[in-house]
């Protein structure tokens, strides 16, 4: 059964912020090693869904199951250690650290829980090698010693991907990775996502750029006003009348 291989299962998740119902009874399943897209108009609840999966805050109701384990109430630091990595819609760099150190923070996920290892030096030969390889992969190796805050946004986005990969994740959540990128930058980011998937990592991405979704995603879910209104292959989604309506507004 395909279902038993699903890496991420979201069941009846709702989230309420004071007066705002950001998510309403959303359920979806993400299969292993696929690239799964989430689309929807502004304010549809896409980022909220990522925050719930990654443990930034718990849902008001519903469950999140990762690799068969209930992670609904786990905080972000623990979901990270289980193998859920993410990037942010608005870049979240450690601005006054070098690009290399930014990536190394992600390499420490096995250390932070062990008091005995916290005192040891972080920049070992091995850790530096691993981080440089990741920076090479995202094309930032020559900026390793630059302060992260000095990089243009497009490069900080790539750095966030490298940093997330430093967790050795099984699931990578990308929140609008192509926002604000030029055509060329978008192309190379798509290549990068492909490469990541080739290594066996499951990718879930929120993306407004339909070209990116059509090219990359195996499956797409559509959110509108906190409700999942459709799910299917990119081509099915593109011609789904409910989706067209959500994006273009009801005609007549």
């Amino acid at each position: 059964m395909a279902e038993t291989h699903d890496i991420l299962v979201i069941e009846h998740v709702s989230k309420q912020f004071y007066g705002v119902q950001a998510l309403r009874d959303v359920s979806l399943r993400v299969g292993r090693a696929m690239i799964f897209g989430i689309v929807g108009p502004n304010g549809a609840g896409k980022t909220t869904l990522f925050n719930i999966v990654s443990g930034a805050y718990p849902p008001t109701s519903g469950f999140v199951i990762f690799e068969g384990k209930d992670i609904t109430q786990l905080p972000a630091a623990e979901t990270a250690r289980l193998g859920i990595a993410r990037t942010f819609q608005i870049v979240h760099s450690f601005r006054n650290m070098t690009v290399l150190d930014n990536v190394i923070v992600g390499c420490g996920h096995r250390v932070y829980g062990k008091v005995s290892r916290l005192a040891s030096e972080y920049k070992t030969y091995e850790i530096r090698g691993k981080s440089m390889a990741l920076l090479q992969m995202v094309g930032l190796a020559e900026h390793a010693d630059t302060l992260a805050g000095k990089l243009p946004i497009a490069q900080q986005r790539r750095m966030e991907v490298a940093r997330a990969l430093a967790l050795d994740p099984k699931l990578l959540l990308l929140d609008e990775p192509c926002a604000g990128l030029t055509y060329g930058e978008t192309e190379s980011l798509m290549d990068l996502v492909y490469k990541v998937r080739e290594t066996g990592v499951t990718v879930v991405m929120v993306e407004h750029n339909m070209g990116v979704i059509m090219n990359l995603c195996d499956e797409v879910a559509v959110l509108d006003f906190g409700v999942k209104i459709a799910q299917g292959s990119p081509h099915e989604i593109a011609i789904d009348p409910r989706v067209i309506e959500a994006y273009l507004g009801k005609e007549a």
Partner: peptide, 8 residues
Amino acid sequence: AAQSLGVP
């Protein structure tokens, strides 16, 4: 970001 990288 720190939390998302496993820092409690």
